[in-house]
């Protein structure tokens, strides 16, 4: 199953969703191909991240979905366009429509990088080196993350982050490379 995520909210929430998708192993491509020249040919297990601000953008997103791509879309068009977009994507797979208040924290790119490292078992020193931070900065940032996730200790933090990532489908053994090719 591929991710079909529509975010109606702040840019940060969309960026967070993109990082989540990337963190579970999907290749993410910025923008949508121009599917104006239908038929769409070929596809891969790529997730497209894009901002949809009008009906033409919504059509491109839906056609990318029809072609088999995953999507992480920031929906900023009018209510009608956003509703139709969600409606269509529900017909293509399981839609993760992120609107309204969410229970789990929205993370920045740096926070994702820290937590990805933590999940992979990296130590503070390694994290500091990889992210060009001091050990003290890494510790401060992890303390803030523990507060955000309301957990004690970095093991619990990594587990909580893993639970949050479970919102997003992971690539299956038959992906990338699935999809519908139109003649």
């Amino acid at each position: 199953m591929r991710p079909l995520i529509v975010v109606e909210g702040r840019d940060e929430e969309w960026v967070h969703a993109v990082h989540q998708v990337r963190a579970v192993g999907w290749p993410v491509s910025s923008g949508l191909c121009d599917h104006a020249a239908f038929p769409v040919t070929g596809c891969s297990g790529v997730v497209c991240s894009a901002v949809v601000s009008d009906s033409a953008g919504a059509a491109r997103a839906v056609l990318a979905g029809v072609a088999g791509h995953g999507l992480v879309v920031l929906a900023g068009a009018g209510r009608d366009v956003n509703d139709r977009l969600c409606d269509d994507l529900r017909h293509l797979g399981e839609l993760d429509h992120r609107v309204g208040v969410r229970r789990t924290p929205v993370l920045t790119a740096e926070q994702h990088a820290l937590l990805d490292g933590l999940r992979a078992g990296e130590q503070i020193g390694t994290l500091a080196e990889r992210l060009f931070l001091s050990r003290r900065s890494v510790e401060r940032r992890l303390a803030l993350l523990r507060e955000l996730f309301a957990v004690d200790g970095n093991v619990a933090l990594a587990a909580a982050y893993g639970t949050q990532l479970a919102e997003v489908p992971v690539p299956g053994p038959d992906q990338p490379g699935r999809g519908v090719a139109f003649p």
Partner: peptide, 20 residues
Amino acid sequence: GALATVSQISYLALRRAVAA
């Protein structure tokens, strides 16, 4: 099946069914 956002594309609903 037809889709609301791209309802203007000719035969889309059928193409999705028997494209190959």
